[in-house]
Design a binder for these strands. Structure first.
Lengths: 214, 214
DNA sequence: ACTTGCGTGTTACTAGCGGTAACACGAGTG
DNA sequence: CACTCGTGTTACCGCTAGTAACACGCAAGT
């Protein structure tokens, strides 16, 4: 009841929670996102109700799990975005950081973005649809803030920055997802191609064959 | 055994299949993607095993359901992409077509892209993660083909076109998703902002405040 | 020392899901 | 009349998320 005791208990609970999260991480990374609560509990050496006491429901556990990876990724992206270099270099560094992250830990990435990847039957996997969006949204909003803070876009800059933030994040995400699956080129080439796209090479390219408006 | 009879039966089966798909469509659009096979069967006025005989499993039914909407969307996108106009106009028309589609039928869109949106408990919803990707991939590949066919990109054009195809589709998708949720601006403004981004306005913008490399 | 409370853990259960086996009716065919 | 074959059903399995109810241990209060 007194404060010190409460603190002790709280600490112990926090440690337990961390242990449970680490166990969940192992299972999810091994079995994919359709890992059952039973399996996670077993990995942690305890039984289901304890998991539910700590995380409420499966969504809660997933959210806690996702937050760890999400925060880590966002931290490294912020670092790349804040590096002292010119704009194109920073953009390329940020793209490369993101791609390096998903390349280094594809299981984590697939867990965050592609929930029911390995599922085939019952499929009560995590409903990541609900939770992967937040990651993309957070990245979009953060990028929008950076754009608005640092670029002079004239009137309507806030709205423009937000559109661009979400659009660029989506571009990075989709291209990265495709690249991770097919590996059609090196990471550096992908980064360069995307930066070229953002730098207007699409508009600047010439037409290939003659045609009316073409 | 004879051909006419087989044809009759096949026709009847196809009609039945269409009816079932329409019933499934109604249920999914009403109950969200976590609609149960039982509910779909009930809406169609039959029982589960018939559904399974027609579609194999839940994924099969979803795939058939998704294919209808996906094909329709891709058709209208192709039309916009092929319109006789200059490049920027075509890009804007395509973006606008996509956004108009998701704006007009947001339930369909959310079903295709955000599987477990309304789920809260058991959540054995469709695993759209597995099936939404194909839509984005198809759009990316088609766009890549168009880009490669019509633009003169110099050496490495095929790879560049594919990166751009998937990247642009991802940009459109993410921006559209965000826009559909928050409606921060009109559709036309969004289209214009995205086209501006593709036209290199990000690179062309000036810095806002003085700084070393900034 | 005895009881009271509380945190931690368990077993045993419910409700609902996807999916399937086994059976039943109806129509055309030898 | 028997025989198949398509269409439909009921009744079940195994699995899941999530929950009640009970049991141990340990510190505090009297």
């Amino acid at each position: 009841m007194d404060t010190t005791q409460r603190t002790d208990q709280q600490r112990s609970a926090d440690r337990r929670r961390r242990e449970l999260l680490e166990a969940a991480d192992r299972v999810v990374l091994r079995d994919g996102p359709q890992a059952s609560m039973n399996a996670i509990a077993a990995e942690a050496g305890i039984t289901k109700p304890i998991l539910y006491r700590h995380f409420g429901d499966k969504g809660g556990l997933y959210a806690a799990l996702a937050k760890r990876h999400t925060d880590a990724l966002l931290d490294s992206l912020r670092a790349a975005l804040d590096a002292p270099a010119d704009r194109r270099e920073r953009v390329e560094a940020t793209l490369d950081t993101y791609l390096a992250a998903i390349e280094a830990r594809p299981q984590v990435y697939r867990f965050l973005m592609h929930p029911a990847e390995g599922s085939q039957v019952g499929d009560q996997g995590f409903d990541v649809g609900k939770h992967s969006a937040p990651l993309l949204r957070r990245m979009g909003e953060e990028l929008a803030q950076v754009i608005e803070d640092r670029l002079d876009l004239g009137p309507g800059s806030q709205q423009l920055a937000r559109v661009w933030g979400h659009g660029i994040v989506g571009m990075m995400h989709a291209a990265g997802d495709w690249w991770l699956g097919e590996r059609p080129c090196s990471r550096a080439e992908l980064v360069r191609s995307l930066a070229d796209l953002l730098w207007g090479r699409l508009a600047a390219a010439g037409d290939k064959v003659g045609g009316p408006g073409f």
